[in-house]
Each structure stands twice: as C-alpha cells, then as structure tokens.
Design a protein around this nucleic acid. Structure first.
Length: 490
RNA sequence: CGGGGCGUAGCUUAGCCCGGUAGAGCGCCUGCUUCGGGAGCAGGAGGUCGCAGGUUCAAAUCCUGUCGCCCCGACCA
C-alpha cells in the first residue's frame, strides 16, 4: 500500500494527474515519434463507441461516408488564401517517393477541404447534384510544437464532414444541424455539458465565413474546444471552381460547410469526469459497463462462485430490455491469485461505471453487491430482476454524471463581470468561464490574451446568455456588441 | 524556438559531488499459505548504466559532443 500506487491528485497537479491517468489506465502510450501516440485498446474502445454514436446520427440526418486520400498536392493548400495562411506552419510534406524526388511535393492532409472540393467540382454540374452530404473518418497530421496525449498530437483521428449546397441559407442550416448533433452527442453520450455559439474572428477556421463550436469546461476550469462546424461560404467553391447551373440556367458557386470532432474528445472525457482514483467513463461510452468480481474464501469455493458469476453475466447479457442491438456490456474478472481489493482498484482506475461483487454471502441472501464508479456508492441489489435494476442504475449514473459536470461548470462560471481589473484577478487566480460584454474589436481580444492568456471561447447562442445582457465592453467600457465567454483554453 | 528537468532491468529509481565487482521497491516467473478494498513467505529470471568520443591501470560516476523524452511558455482540433 505504498504511495506510488496512487495517482497524483488533481489538486496537486492537474496536468500530472491527466498524464498518469491516461498512461496507467492504458488509454494511450507515447510512441517512438515525438508528439505522436498509440491509442491502446481501452482508449480505442471508447473512441469506437463515440464513432458509432456519431456515425448513426450523421446517417440519420442524411449523410453518407466516403474516403479521400491522405496525400494532397501542395498547390491545393495554397488555393485558398486564408487556408494556406492558417495551415502552412503545421504541414508535414512528402518530398520523396520510390527513391526519387517528387515533381510536386505532397502534403499529408491537415484537413481535407481542398482535395474534397476539388473532387466535388468534378462531380457537380447542376443544382440537381446538390446537396452533397459526405463525411469521412480519417487521420490527419498537424505538426504542432507542443503536444499532449489526446488533446494535441501530431496525428489524430477524427471525422470531417464536407457538404456542398445551392444556397447560403441551406449551408447555414447544415452547419447548425451539425452543431446540434455535436451538442446532443456531448450531453447525452459523453455526459459533458457544452456551450454552443459562434467563434470570434480570430478563432475562426482558416477559410471559413463563420465557425460554430461546442465548448466544454474541464475540471481545472479551463476550456476545451470540443467540436467545430464551419459555414465556409463560397470561399472554397471559388478557389476550386465548384460551380453549378441553377434552375434558371445561371452559373453559381456552391456553398460549403465542414465540421469535425476528434479523438481529443477522449481527453475531454477524462478531464470532465475523471477523479483521483482514475477514469470515470459515462456508461453509454464504456466498452465495458459492468465488471463482475466473483469472491471466494477458499479454493473449494472458487468454482461455484465463478459459475455463479458466469450465470449472472449470461442473465445480464441476455436481457433485451434496452433492445436487441444494445445488450449490456459485461466482463467477469475471475483471475486467480489477485485479491479482490486489487481488482477493485484496477477497475476503478479504468473507469468501469459499475462493479458487481458476488460472494457466498450474496448468494445466500439472493443479492449482488453493487459499487458505482461515479459516486463510489455501494448497495445490494436483489438477484431477481437484476438486469433491469442494473440497466436503470446505469441510466442514473449517466444522468448523474451529466448533472455533476454541469454543476461544476456553473460553479466555475462568473457572470456580470464589468471591471477589467476583476477579470484579471479571476484569470490570475482560479479562472473559469467569465461572461462579459465585448465591443467586437479584435484588438481588444488580442490585448486580453496578451495580458491574461484568456481568449473568447464562444459568443454564446441565446440560451446560454445572461438574463440581462452586459451593456458595456469589459475592457474599453464602450457599448457591448456581444456577450462573450472568456476563458483560458487547452 | 526559449526556459526547466530527466535518460541506470518492463516501471519507479539509488549510486554520480568524492572513479574501484550495478543495488532497491514495484511488476514478472515457480511453490506454499492467503483471498468481502492494493496479501505474506521462500526461491528465481531480467542490465552493453541513451549514444559516440576522450581522460585514466580502471568510467554509470570526470570531460567533450550528440540523440531522445517529459514539463513550463509562444502557436494550435
């Protein structure tokens, strides 16, 4: 029972806590290439469930999947002025292939707008060819200077949707539809509350007209951009000659959107829900929802207890109360030679939402003993009707995790800040989401960033705005154009 | 790219100042006893001390160079 078995606590050093948790719960490991990482089965399992949930929502809303190549001609990136400006510094470029220098270097995609709209231009002639609603699951490479497991790595996995529409309004509606999907996913699957709204000009995607985002708060009161949805206007259509003939026979450029979320979400999940004992996974995203630990005192007892555990597992996985395609995900830990206490710690580190203990006493009493990961509350559950009770408990855990995360965010949200001095004090101290007025001037934003490291995370949609709108700009005292949310960000 | 730290067994590290047979804890393997919150005992496997030079009778230790990684900052999903 030495201290090296315990994680560094969040209060001691949040950053060290995060790194230790990711490594020790085997979500990921450092790879031999600086800044890139291996996503291990525990982490990939969560990503797979994220993918499935999102993919279902994309398909339900009329999108289809496709795959575009990893390599993009270097000249493509340069075709949209803002885009090249934004991405040039972080490109990985292939100059040689097959032992020869290439005539034109190939960029390893940092994002796929350019190659995709190049292809769309070939595919679209008429308004009848629109809209195109394509998503792809892919890896991208951005040569970041400072990396962090899941949050920022040289290569990461994501989905990127790219759509083309006949009108601005259609594209705008699409961008907002996706924003809604991202929000729903964050809240209902990740149990992670998010603010939705618009990015300021300086935080906007390189080449976009408008960038919408979902913005989450981590337990250290810093913000995490969890997903973005861009209305690209006609910027890329013009750069790639993506034109079509309208109903009236006129030639027009298409309107595009692009949107993405990445494996960064796994990091967001860790920092939203994790505690000093390790990961806490929301049940809906947990590859294993329930771990059964059979308990025995002597070797004589072992076969009977393992058998009872297997029977319990069969009953749980055979239950169809959640629908035939959504069985309870159950694992039995019947390893010998490891004490049950050690198993508890291990499964808690890994964030399994619910543990069921089954020992001779429980058999006798006709119950199983449950331990929630989120609250660590323990209670017996009657063996009769156990599947339904457990499923209900998992729903409760999912809902409670969301409520707890939301309560944390609200506790760290400060509204009605009108003095810049007070703002600086907050940012120098605990930080948090500060709601305040802004005159809309990028220079003000730049100054605040310089002086406090805080940036405008989001210009929130009405739902998240304060009851009374701030009248004045936090910094200049001029009339406020928007209420914005300031925070330090990952 | 600036600042800081670190490279010794799978992991965490002691030893380095002051050169002289490389040690511990965890983990791993075997056996016995254990088993309702991180087990105990006994035995065992595992190391070109990041790499390359140099100094020396002798280098993990001193010197020079080099590579890598982590953390903090500037830049970013």
């Amino acid at each position: 029972m030495s201290d090296d078995k315990k994680l560094t606590t969040r209060a001691e050093d949040f950053s060290a806590w995060y790194n230790e948790l990711v490594l020790r719960s085997e979500l990921a490991d450092y790879s031999p290439v600086k800044g890139s990482m291996v996503i291990r089965p525990n982490g990939y399992g969560i990503w797979e469930r994220m993918q499935r949930a999102l993919d279902d929502m994309f398909k339900e809303s009329g999108h289809v999947n496709a795959y575009f190549p990893l390599f993009i001609p270097q000249s493509f990136i340069a075709k949209e002025a803002k885009h090249v400006e934004g991405f040039a510094p972080e490109l990985a470029i292939v100059t040689h292939g097959g032992g020869k220098e290439l005539e034109e270097p190939l960029v390893v995609r940092p994002t796929s707008e350019t190659i995709i709209y190049h292809m769309y231009a070939k595919w679209v002639q008429s308004y009848r060819d629109l809209p195109i609603l394509i998503n792809q699951w892919a890896n991208v490479v951005r040569w970041e200077m400072r990396t962090r497991l899941f949050l920022r790595t040289l290569e990461f996995l994501w989905q990127e949707g790219h759509t083309a529409h006949a009108t601005h309004d259609e594209a705008e509606a699409e961008a907002l539809t996706i924003l809604g999907i991202y929000r729903k996913f964050a809240e209902e699957w990740m149990a992670m509350p998010v603010l939705t709204g618009l990015k300021s000009d300086s935080e906007r995607f390189a080449g976009a007209l408008r960038t919408y985002c979902i913005e989450a708060m981590m337990q250290d009161r810093k913000a995490l951009q969890a997903g973005t949805s861009h209305n690209l206007g006609q910027n890329f259509a013009k750069a790639f000659d993506l034109k079509f003939q309208t109903e009236k026979g006129e030639e027009a450029f298409a309107w595009n959107t692009s949107w993405g979320v990445s494996t960064r979400l796994v990091g967001g999940l860790v920092m939203t829900h994790g505690d000093d004992n390790g990961l806490v996974t929301p049940p809906k995203l947990a590859p294993i929802e329930i771990v059964i630990v059979p308990i025995w005192k002597t070797n004589d007892e072992r076969p009977a207890m393992v058998e009872a555990a297997m029977k319990l597992k069969a009953e749980l996985t055979g239950w169809t109360g959640r629908g035939a395609s959504d069985k309870l995900r159950v694992h039995v830990d019947d390893r010998e030679g490891i004490r049950s206490g050690a198993k508890y710690y291990e499964w808690e580190l890994r964030g399994i939402p619910l543990r069921l203990e089954l020992g001779p006493k429980d058999l006798e009493k006709g119950s199983v003993f449950s331990a929630r990961r989120d609250t660590r509350a323990k209670a017996p559950i009657p063996r009769d009707g156990v599947a339904e009770a457990v499923a209900r408990l998992l729903d409760t855990i999912q809902a409670d995790m969301f409520a707890a995360a939301k309560a944390r965010r609200e506790a760290a949200s400060i509204r009605g800040v009108t003095s810049y001095d007070q703002f600086k004090e907050i940012m120098a101290g605990d930080g948090g989401f500060v709601y305040a007025g802004w005159n809309g001037d990028p220079a003000v934003e730049a100054r605040v960033k310089e002086e406090t490291k805080a940036t405008i995370r989001v210009i929130p949609v009405e739902e998240f705005r304060s009851a009374t709108a701030p009248a004045k700009c936090l910094v200049t005292g001029e009339p406020a154009k928007y209420e914005v949310v300031w925070a330090k960000a990952y």
